[in-house]
Amino acid sequence: MMKKTLASLTVLGLLSACASTPSAPTAPAAEPAAPVVESKPAAPVADTTIQPVKPQLDPLKDPANVLSKRGVYFDFDKYDVRADQAALVEAHGRYLAANPSRSVRLEGNADERGSREYNLALGQKRAEAVRQALGAVGAKESQIEAVSNGEEKPRATGRDEASYAENRRADVIYNGE
């Protein structure tokens, strides 16, 4: 385990050593920014200066919007959408119902314990639970594909309950993402 961590650290080290400009780390999604309040003074009439374009925040990327949250977490050995995850899943379902041109891939995951193929099936079971919950609030079947990563793409690589819990997850990934 330690070795894996060291190896990835080494790779990251090499990457930053090669890069001419250091890449900014991705902002943590955990701290939702305050909602953007438009409080501009009334624009003077006949002003010819260029107006700044008001950014239309994509609700899927707006940290203040529940739709920006994409991970649906599950309990150990459980494959039904947990009560505390239901609002998140429902929001995505309603968004899909309102935006029929959008579609999603649901990627189920499992922790690393046991058979890889069986874990693929367990990840699928989680993605499938989310698929059904999205459908229940109006998302169409043609908008959703439920697939599994099994234990092949762990977000957390530790051998502890916190890592296992992080990997008991299904991700909502919109087309084009």
């Binding site: 193929e117 693929l120 699928q124 698929r131 059904q132 439920a146």
Partner: peptide, 8 residues
């Protein structure tokens, strides 16, 4: 193993 109607 396929997941044509949901589960594996």
């Amino acid at each position: 193993t396929l997941t044509l109607d949901g589960i594996s």
